[in-house]
């Protein structure tokens, strides 16, 4: 039934288009007889007028809608570097928005002012080196400013993380994130992809004693105002760690560990108050296509006050203690290993 409807509808549409075409052709032939010397018709005036009209309507719409859309933009960055990249973004947007506006005034009003008129003749104006020089140098200077400011910010963001950073490891896999903290020794144990199995999904190497106190929470917690270093890896395909509120993004690459460090500036509680949304949570998303569940790789991140963070950190139970059976099954006696750790100290 639907198919019949669609087919008959399409045929009808084609017939209508055919008739319109026929009429337009006949009309133009009839008109041309009267005014065969005319180069253009009334349409030329209509088209010329539509450009400035579109300009006015278009820019009013942009202005009006930007006001509304702003409501749904992300709130002010919750990280130190995010403030500077946001500033750069709005600065650049201001500059290019201005260029967009000015060029479109010219581009959309010239067609109106210089539309074909029988008595007019176009100006033979093939070149002007001064003008060319002006619009080479001015964009070049603007670009130079943007490059330099961008370069300073970029170098600041990508310089090596300070040694006192809070460390944690984020691993992407199809289709969720897993997180590991170094535990009380502040050192992440080794890992290797051949150690991965159904239980030990991060492939932690438990023969490395540093692994024994590592814990793997269900939410990321980080302390406000401290340097936080994310050690990022993937165990299958490319993923990308995206923390939109902190302006953080870095790909997770199998075989090549990556990292990103930043300083969070607002706790989850502060953000909830600021937004008036008691359910607000910082979220971690994936931004590198990774398969059917790409759109659902959500993980919660909580920013605590440093004291709360310490409290949370100390409450966490190491993965190894929770999974003693597993360790026994791979031949590691956790009690004796722990003693070894103790004697090391």
């Amino acid at each position: 039934m639907t198919t019949v409807l669609i087919i008959s509808g399409s045929i009808l549409l084609l017939v209508i288009l055919g008739l319109v075409y026929r009429i337009l052709t006949l009309v133009s032939i009839a008109k041309n007889k009267n005014a065969s010397a005319e180069k253009t018709s009334f349409s030329n005036k209509v088209n010329a007028f539509l450009f400035p009209l579109l300009f006015v309507i278009g820019f009013i719409a942009i202005y009006w809608y930007s006001g509304i859309a702003k409501e749904d933009f992300l709130p002010e960055a919750a990280s130190v570097h995010g403030k500077s990249t946001d500033f750069l973004f709005w600065l650049s947007l201001g500059i290019v928005g201005f260029a967009f506006f000015i060029t479109h005034i010219l581009l959309f009003f010239f067609p109106y002012f210089y539309q074909y008129k029988k008595e007019n003749k176009a100006l033979y104006y093939p070149d002007n080196n001064t003008l060319e020089l002006v619009w080479t140098i001015v964009p070049a200077i603007v670009m130079a400013i943007l490059v330099v400011s961008g370069w300073f910010t970029w170098s600041e963001i990508t310089k090596p993380a300070p040694s006192d950073s809070v460390q944690l490891e984020i691993m992407g896999k199809q289709f969720n994130w897993q997180v590991r903290y170094p535990g009380k020794d502040k050192t992440l144990g080794k890992h290797h992809f051949t150690k991965i199995d159904a239980t030990n999904s991060m492939g932690v190497d438990f023969t490395d004693r540093a692994s024994l106190d590592d814990f793997m929470p269900r939410e990321i917690h980080i302390p406000k105002g401290k340097n936080v270093l994310l050690n990022i890896r993937s165990r299958d395909v490319l993923h990308s760690v995206f923390l939109p509120h902190f302006r953080v993004k870095m790909d997770a690459v199998p075989g090549m560990p990556t990292s990103f460090w930043f300083v969070p500036t607002k706790t989850t509680t502060e953000m909830r108050e600021e937004l008036g949304n008691p359910d607000f949570n910082y979220e971690l998303a994936c931004t590198e296509i990774c398969g059917s569940g790409h759109f659902a790789m959500r993980f919660i991140l909580v920013v605590d006050d440093p004291e709360e963070y310490e409290k949370w950190f100390n409450e966490q139970e190491p993965w190894a203690s929770k999974n003693k059976d597993y360790l026994t099954s791979i031949g590691i006696d956790i009690e004796s290993s722990k003693q070894l750790v103790a004697t090391d100290k």
């Binding site: 180069k39 253009t40 349409s43 030329n44 088209n47 010329a48 060029t103 010219l106 581009l107 010239f110 067609p111 210089y114 539309q115 074909y116 008129k117 007019n120 003749k121 176009a122 100006l123 104006y125 003008l131 060319e132 619009w135 080479t136 964009p139 070049a140 670009m143 943007l146 490059v147």
Partner: peptide, 26 residues
């Protein structure tokens, strides 16, 4: 990357100047 904006800008301005004082047929 940002250098490439310069030749692109030249092209855009040249198109616009070509329209200036033309006798445009749409």
């Amino acid at each position: 990357t940002l250098i490439i904006a310069v030749p692109s800008a030249i092209k855009a301005f040249n198109y616009i100047t070509t329209l200036w004082k033309g006798n445009i047929i749409f």
